[in-house]
């Protein structure tokens, strides 16, 4: 019961969607496929809400038990509800509610959440500079090739660097774009894409046939 039903559900759902590609949209299986896709949006979308409940639970627990840094967790909880509650209230009550332009939800996203997310990722520039200084070493022939390519690409992708490369004979920027990016790099990426896609297809088949069950967890 605990594993048979899920395996049967995965089999039926997977087979319907896979087989439907060979039938017209107007056919019964085409209709069922579209229904299943809409159901996926509903069921899968609910995992976002599950994530929110999980975050609230973890933070609430930390506050209740006065764990280290609990005042910060209070801030997290307040932020969750400050953002979420006005968004679910009907817009007909006030233009501040709902998700449209001018709502609390949009304002908090535009003036706090979005710039903070952008800043979090901007700090990576510092880390990558530090990594370039400390760890990017020509310790063997392969690493040297990597280093030379990286340096050349870094130069080529900026106007000042490209102007520098143009001081040398031969069209180095053209060579880099044609033979490195659209040549050797493209070939490697294609190899990886083909390999990963074959892996994903075989994994899909394993899930449909019930051979792959790790997504169910234990118990």
């Amino acid at each position: 019961m605990r594993t048979t039903v899920p395996i049967a559900v995965a089999f039926i759902a997977g087979m319907v969607v896979a087989v439907s590609y060979f039938f017209a949209d107007e056919s019964a299986i085409g209709w069922l496929r579209l229904e299943f896709l809409v159901w996926l949006i509903i069921v899968g979308g609910m995992t976002l809400a599950l994530g929110v409940v999980s975050i609230v639970r973890v933070n609430w627990d930390a506050v209740k038990k006065r764990k280290e840094g609990w005042p910060y967790k209070v801030l997290t909880l307040v932020s969750v509800f400050a953002m979420g509650v006005p968004a679910v209230l009907p817009e007909s009550w006030s233009p501040l509610f709902g998700r449209n332009q001018g709502s609390i939800y949009e304002w908090l996203f535009t003036y706090l959440d979005a710039p903070m997310m952008a800043t979090m990722f901007a700090t990576l520039a510092f880390y990558i500079a530090s990594a370039a200084y400390r760890a990017f070493r020509a310790r063997n022939a392969e690493a040297t090739v990597l280093l030379i390519t990286a340096t050349a690409v870094m130069l080529w992708r900026v106007p000042m660097g490209e102007a520098f490369l143009n001081l040398f004979p031969g069209d180095i920027p053209y060579f880099l774009n044609t033979y490195i990016m659209a040549g050797a790099n493209m070939a490697v990426q294609r190899g990886i894409i083909i390999g990963a896609a074959l892996g994903a297809a075989s994994m899909s088949l394993r899930i449909i046939l019930g051979i792959e069950r790790t997504y169910m967890g234990r118990g």
């Binding site: 500079a129 370039a132 200084y133 070493r137 280093l147 340096t151 870094m154 130069l155 000042m160 660097g161």
Partner: peptide, 12 residues
């Protein structure tokens, strides 16, 4: 970019 290339050279 030039600064980072400088870091790579200096580090090496």
């Amino acid at each position: 970019h030039l600064l980072i290339i400088g870091f790579v050279v200096l580090g090496n």
